[in-house]
Amino acid sequence: MVSFEEIKASNALIDDVTSPSVAVFVGGTSGVGKFTIKALVATGVRVRIYLVGRKGSKEPINAFTQELSTINPKAELIWTEGEVSLLAETKRICEFIKSRESHVNLLFLTAGYAPFGTRKETAEGLEIAGSLEYYSRMLFTLHLLPLLQDAEAPKVISVSAGGKEATTIDLDDIDLKRPGNFGGFKAQVQYATMNTTTLEKLADENPTVTFIHSFPGWVNTGNMRRGPDPNSITAWLLRLALEPLISPFCFSSEESGQRYLFQCTSSAFGGRGVSWKGEPGTNSLGKQADGLFLVNDKCECTLSAKVMPILREKAQGKIWDHTQEVLAPYL
């Protein structure tokens, strides 16, 4: 485990050279994304942050923006409104960012919620959690890759369940559309595994960009209270059962933010960023080199060594072909 003291010591070294000068946070209106933004701004660096969120988040974000400007007047927070469960909206937001920026150093993806309850689809025909946790994230990544490639120490971080992949992924019904095939835990594993296989492919093809798929551990983000049906009996029972159990083990908002700031800036992952004297991270191919890093809640790299070779052989190509088919109209 990378200790919290080691993480804070690393983060104390962040300056205008080693921090991202332009960052895009998708889903940063609450939870891990919001905690990380606050930690980044509190370093005092000069940074421009595009904060992407839904319309209903605007008023709370106004207060958050005022708080951040007091903490660090050099930080610029640009509220970017959009419903990113819709791929057409995701494309519009990407085009807006590309029209304003020549580079992006950090793409931080956290939009999503626990998909417990009945299956519900967007107007574009995708299951909502799947669109947020996979398709929209990949569309943001593909659109912004040229800007990331032109940046110093660029990183893409997808916060979901890195290291929790499974070979049981359903390749015959990737979007879990068949009657009775959708379920909360199955969907979470499906989307997490899809994230990892596609991010690994993108990492192989873009060696100048560091990719991280991470698992945040227990953090009180309010994630279980979001979604299209947060008041369903299933969602209510799960909150009642799980929230009291996980609360004693949760990272505080401060520690979560600092741990993700470390992932955003440390050269422990891919060798670019704040100098790191500890053990270098090992990528998903088992190498201390560029690539995709599967990072657990202790900020350690996991290889998923029993799972990844099977997924590369049997799943990665099918998932990529399916993803290209879904995203093609929005690229």
Rank of each mutant, 00 (worst) to 15 (best):
G56A: 08
A268C: 01
I71T: 14
I7D: 03
Q263N: 14
R119N: 06
A123M: 13
N296M: 11
N223I: 12
N62Y: 14
T168C: 00
I212D: 11
K314V: 08
E101F: 09
S267G: 13
L126Y: 06
E6A: 15
K298L: 14
I97D: 05
Q258W: 10
G217T: 12
S253T: 04
A268R: 15
R225W: 07
G180Y: 01
E165H: 03
M138E: 14
L303V: 04
P207F: 03
V45K: 11
A114M: 14
G281L: 08
S131R: 12
S3F: 11
T208V: 03
S275K: 15
K314A: 12
E124W: 07
G217E: 03
A111L: 08
T167H: 02
D297T: 11
T29E: 06
F108E: 05
P228Y: 07
R119A: 08
I246M: 13
A235G: 01
R225N: 03
A9H: 05
V156N: 06
K34D: 08
L327G: 09
R92S: 02
G163W: 13
N223Y: 12
K186E: 07
L86S: 02
V22F: 03
A192L: 10
L242D: 07
L327Q: 04
P20F: 08
R272K: 15
F211Y: 15
K98L: 14
L51K: 05
Y50T: 00
G273S: 05
W79S: 11
G125K: 06
F185I: 15
P154D: 11
K287Q: 15
L285M: 09
N11I: 01
L106E: 04
G163D: 13
A161R: 07
I49N: 11
V84T: 15
T197P: 08
R312T: 11
